[in-house]
Design a protein around this nucleic acid. Structure first.
Lengths: 255, 255
DNA sequence: CCATGAGAGAGTTATAGAACAGTGGGGAGT
DNA sequence: ACTCCCCACTGTTCTATAACTCTCTCATGG
C-alpha cells in the first residue's frame, strides 16, 4: 500500500507548489513580476504548456494575475482584499453610489469586556482599543458600530483618522492585512446606547451583526458589533447553482 | 475598424459554446455521457489538447463533470442544485443535524396579490398556488413561510405532499429545475398572521426574508416570504479574500 | 461458483514546435 | 521637438504525438 496520497506526482503541481512557496515567502514580492513563461519553463526544465498549467492553478487560487503582452504579476494582497468579498457595509454602499459618512464617537484603550476577550481568545485582564463609530448615509445615522482591536496590533493605530480611513485599510497599511472574517447576524430591537446614536425610535427593528476578523495566521484581531437600522439597510443575496453573492443594500420602500 | 469584440476567434471557445448549446438544448441529456475526448476532438477537427481546453471551460462553469477512467457527464441539474448554494433554511439546518419538521397550514389556488404579481411579472388578474408552511425544530415553531407559485407551473404540484418534499425538489422532479434566486433579508417585529403560527411573543425580533426564484430561462417562478424567529435562527457568513459562504444556523444562547 | 487479472477505453499529463495577439519602448521621419 | 511606426517581449492558442493512470468488464483459472 505505498500508493499514498502524498505523492502528487503531477509535474505541474510540484511547480505550482514551488512558485506558491516562493510567493508566500516573499521571494517574488507582491505586485512584482514573475519571470516570463518561457524563462520559467526553461528554469524548471518543462514545456511551455506544462508551466502554463502550473500558472493556471496559481491564477485560479488568486495568487497571480496574468496580463497579455505585459507579464505575470504577484497579486498585491491589498488589492485582493479590496476586490474580494471581505468588505464592510461602507464599501458595499459606496459602490452603489451612496455617500457614507463615518463619525468617530468614542476611542479609548480599555480593559476588554468578558465577551470580547472570549472571542479574541485573550485574557480577561488584557486591554484593547475600543473604537465606536456611527455611519450615516442619505442624511440619516443608520449604523452604530463598536470595534475592539487586540492590544498587540492597536499601537500603530494611534494616529489614524478613522473618519476617513477604514479599520481594515489602516491595519493593512501597518502590515497586518486581514484575511478572513466570520459574522453572525440576528434581528433585534433598538434600545440602549445604539438608540442614542441612531435616527430611529427605540423599539424599531434592527439587525445586529457580530463579526470576528482574523489575520492570515488565524489570530482573531478585531471583534465588532454593529447595530443596523432595518428601515435603512437590508441584506441582499443572489444564489445560483454555482456561486453566491451577498451584500448590504439600502432599503427601498416596502409598501 | 473591423477589430470587433464579436469575433472571439479562439477555437476552443467556439467549441465550448457549441457544446454548451447542445447541453442546454437537451442534445446531451442531464446525467448522460458526452462522447469521449478523442471522438470529440476528431469530430471538431482539433487536437485533444484544444478540445480539453473547451471542456475545461464547461467544467469551470459547472455544466459537465469529468471522471478519470469513466467519462465526461452532463451535470444533472438536481445534483448541482443540491450541492450548490441554492438551498433552503431546512436544508441548512438538517445538514447541521437538526430535525426540521414542516407543517402545511394553507394551500389554495388564489388570485395573486399585487405585490406578488409584480415580482413574478404576472398580470394582477392571474392566479397562482399559495402555499403556507410552518417549519419547526428543537420543538418550537420557528419559521412561517408563504410561497406563491406561478399558475403555469403549479398544475403538476397538486399531488405533492409538501410536509415531506421541498418545493424546489417537487418542481425539479416535474421538469422545472430552479436555477437562481434573489433574496433580501430585513429585520422586523413579530405580528399578525405569522405571530399566530410561531412560538414566540408578539413584538419579538424576527427576520423577514423575501425571495424570488427563477428558472434557467430567467422566468420568476416562485415568490416567497418567510418570517424567522430571531431567538431561533441567525445568519452566519464566512468571508475570505476569495470565496464566501452563507448559511442559516440555530441561534446559540447569547448571554 | 467465485476470485483474479488482462485489457479496452476513458480522462490526465507531458513533449516539441509554431504561430497569433497585446504592450510598450525606441528610433526614424516630419 | 514631436509624432508615428516598427520591433522585441509578453502571454495565448494550437498542432501532433506519446505515455500515463483510473475504472470497468469479461474471460480465465482455481
Amino acid at each position: 500500500m505505498a500508493t499514498g496520497q502524498d505523492a502528487p506526482a503531477a509535474r505541474y503541481r510540484t511547480i505550482a507548489a514551488d512558485l506558491a512557496a516562493k510567493i508566500r515567502s516573499g521571494d517574488y514580492p507582491p505586485g512584482g513580476a514573475l519571470p516570463s513563461q518561457r524563462d520559467l519553463s526553461a528554469a524548471y526544465g518543462v514545456t511551455l504548456m506544462t508551466l502554463r498549467q502550473a500558472l493556471r492553478q496559481l491564477s485560479d487560487e488568486g495568487l497571480i494575475e496574468q496580463q497579455p503582452g505585459r507579464g505575470t504579476f504577484v497579486t498585491p494582497p491589498h488589492l485582493a482584499y479590496r476586490l474580494g468579498s471581505l468588505r464592510s457595509f461602507a464599501d458595499d454602499l459606496r459602490e452603489q453610489g451612496h455617500e457614507v459618512r463615518t463619525a468617530v464617537v468614542g476611542r479609548a484603550v480599555r480593559r476588554l469586556p468578558a465577551r470580547v476577550a472570549g472571542t479574541l481568545r485573550a485574557s480577561a485582564t488584557d486591554s484593547g482599543l475600543r473604537l465606536e463609530r456611527v455611519r450615516a448615509f442619505a442624511g440619516r445615522r443608520a449604523v452604530h458600530q463598536v470595534s475592539w482591536v487586540r492590544a498587540s496590533h492597536a499601537d500603530g493605530l494611534r494616529e489614524v483618522d478613522f473618519a476617513a480611513t477604514s479599520l481594515y485599510e489602516a491595519l493593512a497599511t501597518r502590515g497586518v492585512p486581514v484575511a478572513r472574517a466570520t459574522e453572525t447576524i440576528r434581528p433585534g430591537i433598538l434600545a440602549g446606547a445604539p438608540a442614542a446614536h441612531l435616527d430611529d425610535a427605540p423599539g424599531a427593528a434592527v439587525l445586529i451583526s457580530d463579526r470576528t476578523t482574523y489575520t492570515s495566521d488565524g489570530i482573531a484581531i478585531v471583534a465588532d458589533r454593529a447595530t443596523i437600522l432595518g428601515s435603512m439597510m437590508e441584506i441582499n443575496t443572489d444564489r445560483a447553482a454555482r456561486g453566491l453573492s451577498l451584500h448590504w443594500g439600502a432599503s427601498r420602500d416596502v409598501s
